[in-house]
């Protein structure tokens, strides 16, 4: 059963990452391929403070969020003020820069060696308890995302998504909205990253690559862009299926590419035939325009 709770924690953590990404992708239609980098910032901040400075796990979270918020703010301000696809390219480049920093700044991050023996908070040491902790954070994250979605602020985000020019023409500062939601999303992602570090107990740069960012995007699309519960379902489906595959005698050389093909194909098929995902966004009357 231990393994079962491990998978549950993994689902909850990817749920947090996906829900937070949904804020920018689903609510606002900003396509970021740097989400794994912010997850990485959270993971590294927590891991370094836990192993090097003897911080309490919960005390690392504000630091992780602050760093992620600051860095994402810089990225957002420099790219989101530009029209067109620049923010995609900006986040793309940023993802690679940050990966290189994790990999090559050996003095700080341990480079390719990663960071080992990352402790879990004492009261949540077992897999069962850690699963409860991550589910708790997921619940908080969902609550925040829903509140954001239902608030007037969230309605402006959706208006920007539907028609940027119109939103700007009614006097909304589009850039400010975009930057703020991007920063919020990155801060939540850093919490996911910190929890991830605790679960796996080991992190290295190879986790936080552009492939991971694309994987997270796939979870958002398959789950349902704009629906935060959909994000949790998307994460659950795509985390559990490959874990379940471990129990069947599929040769590993074949299993891992097949897993990738599966989620790639699912993403294409969903975009084409069910673009609203497993759980479509619920739009209450009067919400848009």
């Amino acid at each position: 059963m231990n393994y079962f709770f491990y998978v549950i924690s993994l689902v909850a953590i990817y749920g947090i990452l996906t829900v937070s990404l949904n804020l920018v992708v689903g609510y606002t239609a900003i396509l970021s391929v740097a989400h794994a980098a912010f997850m990485g910032i959270g993971a590294y901040a927590a891991a370094l403070l836990l192993t090097g400075w003897g911080f309490n796990f919960f005390a690392t979270l504000p630091v992780a969020m602050a760093v992620a918020g600051l860095v994402s703010g810089i990225l957002a301000v420099s790219t989101l003020r530009l029209k067109g696809d620049y923010y995609i390219i900006g986040s793309f480049g940023f993802q690679v820069i940050l990966y290189n920093v994790f990999l090559n700044w050996i003095g700080l991050t341990g480079g390719p060696f990663g960071i080992r023996n990352i402790p879990r908070p004492q009261a949540f040491g077992s897999n069962l308890r850690y699963a409860i902790l991550t589910l708790g954070f997921l619940a908080v994250c969902l609550w925040v995302a829903r509140r954001v979605g239902e608030s007037p602020y969230g309605k402006v985000l959706r208006a920007i998504r539907e028609d940027e020019a119109a939103a700007a023409s009614i006097g909304k500062n589009v850039t400010r909205y975009k930057v703020s939601v991007f920063v919020l999303s990155s801060m939540l992602a850093s919490v996911g990253g910190a929890l991830y570090a605790g679960l796996i107990s080991y992190i290295d740069p190879f986790t936080f690559t552009i492939h991971e960012s694309i994987f997270l995007l796939a979870l958002v699309i398959i789950g349902g862009s704009g629906n935060v519960y959909g994000s949790v379902v998307g994460a659950a489906v795509l985390i559990v299926i490959p874990e379940a595959l471990r129990f069947f005698d599929v040769p590993t050389t074949v299993a891992s590419p097949i897993r990738e093909i599966l989620y790639g194909l699912l993403m294409i098929l969903f975009l084409r035939f069910r673009p609203k995902g497993l759980l479509p966004e619920r739009i209450t009357p009067g919400m848009v325009r």
């Binding site: 239609a29 396509l31 391929v33 696809d85 995609i88 492939h211 694309i214 995007l217 796939a218 699309i221 590419p257 097949i258 990738e260 093909i261 989620y263 790639g264 194909l265 993403m267 294409i268 975009l271 084409r272 673009p275």
Partner: peptide, 19 residues
């Protein structure tokens, strides 16, 4: 679909072809 869906699908194509 808009520009964003096409971009997303291009990521997916990338992942599939790679595997």
């Amino acid at each position: 679909a808009g520009v964003m869906e096409v971009l997303l699908s291009s990521f997916a194509v990338f992942v599939v072809l790679q595997s």
